[in-house]
C-alpha cells in the first residue's frame, strides 16, 4: 500500500471536523452525543495510523483504553439523558436552559 500517513491524518481530521459540526449544529442531545463519539473515533484512526507508521505498539494499546473509556462514558451519559428526559420530557437542547443566569 502506498497510501501515506498524510492520507490517514487527513481522514481523521475530516472526521473530527464533521463531528464538531454535529456538536455545534444539532439540537438533539442524542445526536450531539453521537457526534462526540464520532470525534473520538477520528482520534482512534489517527492513533492507529501513527502507531503503524512508527512501528510501535503503543498507539494500538492506547486505542484499547479509548474504546473502553468511550463505552463507559456512553453508558453513563445515556443514563443521565434518560434521567433528564424523565424530568423534562424533552431532549432538545434549546429547551434545557434552566442553568441560565
Amino acid at each position: 500500500m502506498t497510501v501515506g500517513l498524510n492520507a490517514f491524518i487527513l481522514l481523521a481530521g475530516l472526521l473530527f471536523a464533521i463531528g464538531m459540526l454535529g456538536v455545534i449544529l444539532r439540537k438533539n442531545t442524542l445526536v450531539i452525543y453521537m457526534s462526540l463519539e464520532l470525534m473520538l473515533n477520528a482520534v482512534i484512526i489517527a492513533l492507529v495510523a501513527f502507531s503503524r507508521y512508527n512501528g510501535t505498539m503503543d498507539g494500538n494499546l492506547f486505542v484499547f483504553f479509548i474504546i473502553t473509556v468511550a463505552a463507559a462514558e456512553v453508558a453513563l451519559g445515556l443514563a443521565i439523558i434518560v434521567a433528564l428526559f424523565r424530568l423534562r420530557q424533552t431532549v432538545m437542547v434549546d429547551q434545557l436552559t434552566s442553568l441560565s443566569r
Partner: peptide, 17 residues
C-alpha cells in the same frame, strides 16, 4: 461574564472551542 451563563449548550461549546 453573566451573559456567558445562558443555559444554551451550544454557547458553551462555542466558548470551549
Amino acid at each position: 461574564s453573566r451573559s456567558l451563563h445562558d443555559g444554551n449548550l451550544h454557547t458553551y461549546v462555542y466558548w470551549f472551542l
